[in-house]
């Protein structure tokens, strides 16, 4: 049977999994970071749209795991476990972490430079879980839309000004 490929959307502070031939997409990343975990052999991929670096910032009675770098990566790992895929089989690609408003919010709260902080937190979490980060498209001052295809493990990164790149 031939399966028709779907593009599964990942919203802000959201996560999802797909198997081939489906793809994962998240749109309009600014300071947020898309974390994609995948494995060469099983053709399964998970994506989280991370908004903030640490769940210690959570003041809500309920915790949205996909929102924070630490809990998002834990939740992705847990999702792979359900597919019987262990952490050591995984690789990661990340994109995002831009600084959209370089002059804004400088003397303000700790949320200035949130993009680079998100990237740093995601990298630290990947390292802590011993997941190799094989490609990244991060920083800068432009927004990104990303599409991941687990059939090829290619991450397509589209920016408003630079067009489409593949990493």
């Amino acid at each position: 049977m031939i399966k028709v490929a779907k593009v599964v959307k990942v919203g802000i502070a959201d996560m999802n999994f797909v198997t081939t031939p489906d793809m994962l997409k998240t749109s309009g990343l600014g300071s947020c970071v898309a974390v994609i975990l995948f494995t060469r052999h099983r053709q399964v991929a998970g994506m989280a749209h991370v908004m903030l670096p640490s769940s210690s910032l959570n003041h809500s009675p309920s915790l949205n795991q996909a929102k924070y770098a630490d809990t998002a990566i834990q939740a992705l790992l847990a999702g792979f476990k359900k597919h019987h895929i262990a952490g050591y089989m995984l690789k990661a690609k990340i994109a995002g972490g831009a600084q959209m408003f370089p002059f804004a919010s400088q003397k303000d709260d700790g949320l200035a430079r949130i993009g680079p902080r998100n990237v740093k937190a995601v990298r630290q979490q990947l390292e802590a879980h011993r997941i190799p980060l094989v490609a990244e498209d991060i920083g800068g001052t432009a927004g990104r839309t990303v599409v991941f295809d687990p059939a090829t493990n290619i991450l397509q990164v589209k920016t408003a000004d630079r067009g489409v790149a593949e990493i």
Binding site: I12, L29, G30, S60, F101, D109, G143, R144
Partner: peptide, 22 residues
């Protein structure tokens, strides 16, 4: 500050404080 970019990239910046609560 002015940004000419994707809606999500721009507006999500304004949600950072709020997103810690809701």
């Amino acid at each position: 500050a002015l940004a000419i970019d994707m809606v999500g990239a721009v507006l999500s910046y304004g949600l950072l404080e709020l997103s810690q609560y809701s």
